[in-house]
Amino acid sequence: MNLFDAVAVFAAGIAAGGINTVVGSGSLITFPTMVALGFPPVTANVSNNIGLVPGSVTGAYGYRDKLRGQRTRLLRLGAASVLGAALGSLLLLELPASAFDVIVPVLIVIALVLVIVQPRLQAYLRARERRQREHGGPGLWAGVFGAGVYGGYFGAAQGIVLIGLLGTALKEDLQRVNAAKNVLSALVNGTAAVVFISSWAIGRTGINWLAVLLIAAGSTIGGLLGAKVGQRIPSNVLRGVIVLVGLVALWRFLF
């Protein structure tokens, strides 16, 4: 990795950390950047996941005021996130690399669609006045588990999936939903990172540790910035950047 590559990965980490805190889908910045720089897709995905863990933690910390009163809920849903992430990361390691090359473009398309429809989704959630269970019930638990599997395998836009699930099932304002999303995303990324590092330790997984360190440093900064000022960025601008980078990733994979 030359100096230009290192700067690009670090900058992508800052952007991803901020985007993950505010919206979700930061991996649509870091993962395509690494692939474009020549990293093998699975190595890029694994290294990216590990590097984004500090940013997830700082983002969740930045929203700590919105987490008051959600401890019991997050303990229940956190178990679903951890179990789902463990399964998803194991699937990534056990399925052949060729399967990743086929599955990831589909996941990127799903992620991009979620990014594009997010404003309508949020408007729909704001307009809802249905009575929901305090912790969402078994349906939400199952949905969070599925989001964990998705996040452990690839992860882009898992935050948007979680916002949709939590906002639909819980009678909470979107700021508190977003705070809960940040905690669950951090659990997913952290669980997958443990699985990936354990696999690397026994020689089964490739990890580029320089990229991990650069993304970790960048995402930590981005997570803090996202929690403080990220919501001032025009959402349409942010959404446009994510979609553009995602389309570049699709082009890279398909052509």
Rank of each mutant, 00 (worst) to 15 (best):
A99N: 11
S185T: 15
T168S: 12
A201H: 11
I242G: 02
G13N: 04
R133G: 15
V42G: 02
V177L: 07
A179E: 06
L254P: 07
G78Q: 02
A179Y: 04
E129T: 14
F31K: 00
L112Y: 03
V109P: 05
V183K: 05
G69L: 06
G146A: 14
G230K: 08
D65F: 07
N208R: 12
D101M: 10
L3A: 12
A169Y: 12
Q175I: 06
L95D: 08
G246Q: 09
G17S: 07
L125H: 08
N48F: 02
V194L: 15
L254I: 15
A11H: 02
V106E: 05
V53I: 11
F255Q: 06
I242K: 08
G78V: 03
V102G: 00
T72I: 07
L187I: 06
L91Y: 05
V9R: 04
V248D: 03
R232D: 14
S81K: 03
L112H: 05
R133F: 10
Q122V: 15
A193F: 09
L214D: 09
A179W: 09
G78N: 01
A80N: 03
Q70E: 14
R126S: 09
G246E: 07
S219K: 00
N20A: 10
I110P: 00
I160M: 04
T30P: 09
Q132V: 11
T33M: 14
F39R: 07
L28C: 06
G13D: 08
F31N: 01
V188R: 01
R68V: 11
R131C: 01
A156C: 11
V144Y: 03
A127T: 01
S89G: 14
L77I: 08
I215N: 11
D5M: 10
I215M: 11
L77P: 01
F4V: 09
A15Q: 01
R68M: 05
G148L: 10
W141T: 02
L83S: 10
A201Q: 13
W200M: 12
Y61H: 10
A147P: 05
L121R: 10
I29R: 00
R176I: 05
R128S: 15
G218W: 00
W141D: 01
L250M: 09
I207D: 01
Y124V: 00
I19N: 03
R204T: 15
L95P: 00
R232F: 13
